[in-house]
Amino acid sequence: MTVTPYALFRAAVVRTSQVTPHLRRITFAGPDLAGIVSAGLDQRIKLFFPLAGQDEPVVPEGENWYTEFRALPDDVRPAMRTYTVRDFRPGELELDVDVVLHGDTGPGSSWAGRASAGDRMAILAPDARHTPIVGYEFKQPADTAWTLVAGDETALPAITAIVESLPAGARVLAFVEVDSLAEITPMSSAADVSLTWLSRAGKPAVGGGLLREAIERTTFPDGKPYAWLAGESSAITDLRRHLVNARGIDKELVYFSGYWLLGSAIE
């Protein structure tokens, strides 16, 4: 049997909690989760959201699952979206995923807003039998002198996990754009962290401005940096361009990812 980096697992919601007005934590559990592994940090997984009338998402099993999945009729095939593992507790077979709620404008937000204990979920996640673990990108060099992490609320679970993982002696500049100051969540870390929250004051996210403007005004520490950027695709691409072209950071030391795109869906 071929062991692939990712495998399909089934689980159920065991509880939900409202972390902030627009961030809801969904906790999944079940015996299947014994087969999952997570590197923490910005570990990616995919969730499949059942359509109306389905008790659980219809996702084929086996090596050719994706081809069969794409071939499913539109009225059967569930929406698939990428999320970050907020926390994985293998001893308890529990997995936390934080979902940004932004009305009924997307399948993830719509599902999470009404999710309750017992709801079934299909999860594509790293297979514990596969080495190495894949699906995470925060990989700063050992000689990094300071770290920059920046993103909007969709990157908050990853940013929090990254900041919390960094050791004493590490220097971190963190910038997070959120809907309002009510979205601020605590972060604990042994590292020396300068954390800047940027509020849109309830205005819609438009994919530009706040992160770039704040970082432009920031004096960077001396030494070799490593930057991790995630959020709305156009804003993050623009921020990466600023770091490389205007601030002189080696492009190989800047990881950037468009977690979402204005006016479009990203699976």
Rank of each mutant, 00 (worst) to 15 (best):
G103C: 08
D104H: 02
D104Y: 00
T105C: 01
T105R: 07
T105N: 12
G106Y: 02
S109W: 08
S110L: 10
S110G: 04
W111R: 00
W111F: 14
W111C: 00
G113C: 03
R114V: 12
R114L: 11
R114H: 13
A115R: 07
A115P: 00
S116P: 00
S116V: 10
S116I: 04
A117M: 10
G118C: 05
G118L: 07
D119T: 06
R120T: 01
R120W: 02
R120Y: 03
M121F: 00
A122K: 12
A122S: 14
A122M: 15
A122G: 04
I123A: 01
I123T: 00
I123Q: 00
L124R: 10
L124C: 14
A125R: 03
A125N: 09
A125T: 02
P126Q: 13
D127I: 06
D127W: 09
A128Y: 05
R129H: 10
H130Q: 10
P132T: 07
I133E: 04
V134F: 07
G135V: 10
G135N: 10
Y136K: 04
E137C: 11
E137S: 15
F138C: 08
K139W: 03
Q140C: 09
Q140W: 12
P141Y: 11
P141T: 07
P141V: 01
A142P: 05
D143Y: 11
T144K: 04
W146G: 08
T147L: 14
T147R: 11
V149D: 13
V149I: 15
A150C: 11
A150M: 10
A150K: 03
G151E: 13
D152S: 10
E153V: 12
T154I: 07
A155H: 02
L156W: 11
L156E: 14
P157S: 06
P157V: 05
A158N: 02
A158D: 06
I159A: 08
I159T: 07
